[in-house]
Design a protein around this nucleic acid. Structure first.
Length: 174
DNA sequence: CAGGCTCTTCACA
DNA sequence: TGTGAAGAGCCTG
């Protein structure tokens, strides 16, 4: 794995890229310490290189509300985790879905398990787990804090009033 | 608000 | 291998 970083507005973004096919394997949330970003995005063995700085920059742009398509690869995950992560990638820019909708679209009632999977999302920002909210349309949790979740949603055009989201923004599968 | 339900994962035996 | 606790949830009274 190759780690590249990008710095913007005092925040560091790191990505871990597959040496064989150039796909994104891991990403970090924005961190104020470079090493923290690297630690979050790396998996052994890895080497640091600026080769994929552009991808790290893209993650940064996505964080600040730009719509970007990424080539990802999911590895070391159970079938359930993989299913959930792939499904979350289907949620379009500017829309949200709920833990419940996700569960139903996967034919299960494992609402909580989905939260657990997203809490361990290896590709935050890239796999838009910030677009998953509770079924009562309140924000729900986020690994980087709901503050960050709220800001990301607003930057991509989903208003958050209090910590609630208007139903017109929910995406339903099928 | 309390409590039960629903699942998966992880730690620890 | 087995059991129990915990989790970014949901539903009912």
């Amino acid at each position: 794995m190759i780690i590249s970083t990008y710095k913007c507005k005092g925040l560091y973004f790191a990505v871990g890229i597959s040496k064989s096919d150039g796909r994104i394997l891991k990403s970090s949330l924005p961190r104020s310490k470079k090493q923290d970003a690297i630690d979050e995005a790396s998996d052994f063995p890895f080497e640091i290189s600026s080769r994929y700085e552009k991808i790290a920059k893209d993650v940064c742009k996505a964080y600040y509300g730009k719509q970007i398509k990424f080539n990802v690869s999911i590895y070391n995950k159970t079938p359930f985790e993989t299913e959930v992560l792939l499904k979350v990638m289907e949620v379009p820019y500017g829309k949200v879905t709920t833990y419940k909708n996700l569960a139903e679209s996967l034919g299960t009632k494992a609402y909580r398990a989905i939260g657990t999977v997203l809490n361990k999302n290896p590709l935050p920002i890239v796999i838009p787990c910030h677009r998953v909210i509770k079924s009562d349309l309140s924000l729900g949790g986020y690994r980087g804090g709901i503050r960050m979740k709220k800001e990301m949603l607003e930057k991509e055009g989903v208003p958050v009033v209090g910590n609630m989201i208007h139903p017109v923004y929910i995406h339903s599968f099928k």
